[in-house]
């Protein structure tokens, strides 16, 4: 947005007699013109596909129909309050919070574990890294279609192998108590390998000399992990946490394929709720309002974490 200002300013200031200001701007503008020209294609696409869509959502969120054939009318914040009082939405938010915590913590923990175990490069670790990274390469939709067969009650692969050990065979996707966990297991399986990459990169940045000094001082492996490696990995942790949280809100492919938000809304996540409002209920106003709320929450979260990150990096 601010990038467009210089282009508009010369017109605005030409009416005022403050020529020196005008001159300064035109010369500045001339100097940076090639840069803007180079940016133009990107700006056009951003305007078309990002800012345009966002402002459309903002407008749509303010309008609603009273009855199916009534004309659209301005309702202000009514859509937002309708969303906030909808038990399906609050249910989806709660599910999403459980889902975010239940996927981020285990997958980050596993990723760190994998990275620490496979930090040294040799033939074996390379093969293992590739194996752990494999789920990332499978598209979520294809992976979900596979899990549909793995989770089949009574006759699926999972029941075939571990069913014998359980007293009662769970209906993995058909029981509201279990379904969200099943969905979370897929996400962890899918993402842990991806986050491992960031930790592997982070481990490369741990200074050798500090590690050597610690070694000479007689610090054991646990001490080195606790006092050197983990503090050095802090920026990586922050970054991966942000990515994991964003994934928890934006990845719903498996919900689409496996459960459609069911049974009884047990796996309904916020993005799927928005989809339902928009295409099943045909309620664009409510869908836009829910989108706005989600966007606001995500932006706040991202801003907060990047600020903490900037503070840490600017510190020493």
């Amino acid at each position: 947005m601010s990038l467009a200002e210089p282009a508009a300013l010369p017109v605005a200031t030409s009416a005022a007699p403050r020529l020196n200001v005008l001159k300064r701007f035109t010369s500045r503008f001339k100097a940076s013109l090639p840069a803007y020209l180079l940016l133009l294609p990107s700006l056009i696409f951003l305007a078309l596909f990002t800012y345009g869509a966002m402002s459309r959502v903002l407008i749509d969120a303010l309008y609603q129909r009273a009855t199916p054939k009534a004309p659209l009318r301005f309702v202000g914040l009514d859509n937002i309050s309708a969303v906030l009082t909808d038990p399906a939405f609050t249910g989806a938010v709660v599910n999403n919070l459980i889902y975010a915590l239940g996927t981020a913590i285990p997958s980050i923990g596993l990723a760190l574990l994998f990275a620490l175990a496979l930090a040294r490069t040799n033939a074996v670790t390379s093969a293992l890294r590739a194996a752990l990274f494999l789920p990332v390469l499978i598209p979520m939709v294809a992976a979900s279609a596979l899990f549909l067969f793995i989770f089949l009650p009574n006759v699926g692969l999972l029941d075939h192998y571990i069913g014998r050990l359980l007293p009662v065979l769970p209906n993995w996707l058909g029981d509201p108590d279990v379904a969200l966990t099943a969905i979370m297991i897929i996400t962890i399986w899918k993402n842990a390998g991806y986050y491992m990459l960031f930790f592997l990169a982070g481990l490369q940045a741990v200074p050798e000399d500090v590690m050597e000094a610690a070694h000479l001082d007689g610090a054991g492996p646990f001490m080195r992990l606790r006092y050197i490696i983990l503090p050095e990995l802090k920026p990586t942790f922050l970054f991966v946490t942000v990515i994991a949280t964003l994934n928890a809100v934006t990845q719903v492919d498996h919900v689409f394929v496996l459960t459609q938000g069911g049974p009884s809304n047990a796996t309904n996540l916020v993005l799927f709720y928005i989809y339902q409002q928009a295409v099943e209920h045909f309620d664009v106003g409510k869908a836009s309002a829910a989108t706005l709320l989600t966007l606001a929450a995500l932006m706040a979260l991202t801003a907060l974490s990047f600020r903490t990150m900037a503070k840490r990096e600017g510190g020493p």
Binding site: L148, L152, P153, N154, V155, N171, L173, G174, D175, G262, P263
Partner: peptide
């Protein structure tokens, strides 16, 4: 009858496999 909600393909697979 198996508990929970079972989708159509799971029911037909179950029938075909004799479950």
């Amino acid at each position: 009858h198996p508990p929970g909600a079972t989708p159509g393909p799971a029911v037909s697979t179950s029938f075909i496999s004799g479950n």
